[in-house]
Design a protein around this nucleic acid. Structure first.
Length: 458
RNA sequence: GCGGGAUUAGCCUAGUGGUUAAGGCCCCAGAUUGUGGAUCUGGUUAGACGGGUCCGAUUCCCGUAUCCCGCCCCA
């Protein structure tokens, strides 16, 4: 029995799953770049205040879901429970509120919340996210929804639906809360105990209560959109028009509110609809919204923003359920074996040019009989065995054996790379630098277009 | 954080208040002085952890841990 185990709600990603997470990151990050959202990485640990100020003192995340971090008894630090506030902190710390707007970020990072683990709810979980600082235009909200819908289409997620709503801005939200609070206060006795508390803390949250008692009251409550200002309604109308124009399926839910205090106006959730995931209530695969006051809340100038966060663990599970394959091979294509004992250096020497050439090559370290080594190579998923040390594989020759076709040929050492290449693919090493090519190399008219137009003012 | 269920080897499953806890898969080795996934034989590995009841517990009870379900909340 293991003496240690991973902490509650935290798990290991074994190679296959880790590869899937890497693949998801690559796809999401590439798309983010295509939308103009470069990656930012912030520390896993942040000042507690970053979240208490932004997410809301009264929210559960801040209340009791944050992990304290201390060094030599010096506290005040927490494991970040979400990305938006952390990215906003970085945005301000580096003076990026003075950078050309909008300022856009993508992130893909683990988050930590001390919540009770449940289906697809972990204490350490991965989120991808987008943050856009600057624009007040509804277009930015629409683009983020568009990003997510097209991302899900690209990776093959089908069973989800999109819900959108608006909850008003700083001027308006207090009025909405007040109106709802007074309505629910009048019917206080009919509310669930939970909602009686919510009445004090955040009456908006009563709207998405699951309790049947509350739901009846909510159904008869004043409609959110009737309580909002004209500007909020207009902004929301533009969001809806944009989503519609792009042909994305959506549903307006006037009871959709979010648990984080910083949201203003637009809020949205992408919720899984597969039965396996709806058994236990809604599971969001991505959610976000507009946060027009967050930057100010954290001590910056008035800069509006909008963003989204998606659960990688959730997305991974949903895609798996839909039969989508993710991640590259985790096993070497080529195995180097030998019938000779204690010739490890020779095996490494054979492997080296193959590796240089881009093949994934593993070595059998043992002096076991050749049949054992072959069996082991097959069990490790190898497609090709390179065998040395047999009578025919001497004097500068090795055997290259196709383990799938069960055919082989004796090959000169100098030709091993070529021969192996007939059976398994080479893998490209990602470039260390992927910048613009030398502009001087560009030849005007090379693609058939006319040479650069001359500017008459010159 | 609150409530309910579960926990037998690396994995899946059986069984029992009483001597060496069973089987399958996996893993290791041998049959096969060396070309594989089969077969046969052998081997390693277990009742989450800590208490209690009892002559004796893996089996009954309690606590703790983890997982699952519901609530809260949320990606």
């Amino acid at each position: 029995m293991p003496t240690f185990q991973a902490p509650r709600g935290m798990r290991d990603l074994l190679p296959e799953e880790a590869a899937a997470f890497d693949a998801l990151q690559a796809v999401i990050e590439a798309r983010a770049l295509r939308y103009g959202y470069p990656r930012i990485a912030t520390p896993i640990v942040e000042d507690r205040g970053v979240f208490t100020k932004s997410v809301g003192e009264a929210s559960d995340i801040v209340g009791y879901e944050m992990y304290d971090v201390s060094l030599h008894g010096q506290g005040g630090l927490v494991l970040r429970p979400e990305g938006t506030a952390a990215v906003t902190r970085a945005f301000l710390e580096h003076g990026l509120h003075r950078a050309p707007r909008p300022v856009r970020f993508f992130y893909y990072e683990p988050m930590f919340r001390g919540q009770r683990p449940q289906l697809l709810r972990y204490r350490q979980f991965w989120q991808w996210g987008l943050e856009c600082f600057g624009p007040e235009e509804a277009l930015a909200d629409v683009e983020i929804v568009d990003f997510t819908a097209r991302l899900f289409a690209e990776v093959g997620l089908r069973s989800y639906e999109l819900e959108v709503n608006t909850i008003g801005d700083a001027k308006c939200q207090p009025k909405v809360k007040e109106a709802l609070a007074s309505y629910f206060a009048k019917n206080r006795d009919a509310l669930s105990d939970e909602s009686k508390e919510r009445l004090e803390r955040n009456p908006l949250r009563i709207l998405d209560s699951k309790d049947p008692k509350d739901r009846a009251l909510v159904a008869a409550a004043p409609q959110m959109h009737e309580l909002l200002c004209a500007e909020d309604r207009e902004h929301f109308a533009q969001v809806i028009a944009g989503i519609e124009r792009l042909g994305h399926q959506y549903k307006v839910s006037q009871t959709l509110v979010r648990g984080l205090d910083y949201y203003t106006r637009t809020v949205f959730e992408f919720v899984l609809t597969d039965r396996e995931f709806t058994k236990s209530g809604d599971i969001a695969v991505a959610a976000g919204g507009r946060y027009n006051d967050l930057v100010q809340t954290l001590g910056g100038p008035p800069v509006q923003g909008v963003g989204i966060a998606g659960g990688v663990d959730v997305l991974h599970a949903a895609l798996k359920k839909e039969g989508v394959r993710m991640g590259g091979a985790t096993e070497a294509d080529v195995y180097v074996l030998s019938a000779e004992k204690a010739d490890g250096a020779d095996r490494l020497q054979i492997a080296d040019p193959l590796r240089q050439a881009g093949f994934n090559v593993a070595i059998d370290y043992s002096d076991r009989p050749l049949d054992k080594q072959l069996e082991s190579a097959v069990k490790h998923g190898a497609k090709v065995a390179v065998i040395r040390g047999t009578p025919e594989a001497r004097g500068g020759n090795v055997i290259v054996r196709d383990l799938v076709a069960k055919t082989q040929r004796v090959t000169r050492l100098a030709a091993v790379v070529t021969e192996v290449g007939r059976h398994v693919p080479k893998h490209r090493t990602p470039p260390l630098y992927e910048g613009p090519s030398n502009p001087d190399e560009h030849e005007p008219g090379a693609a058939g277009e006319a040479p650069f137009l001359k500017d008459d003012r010159d």
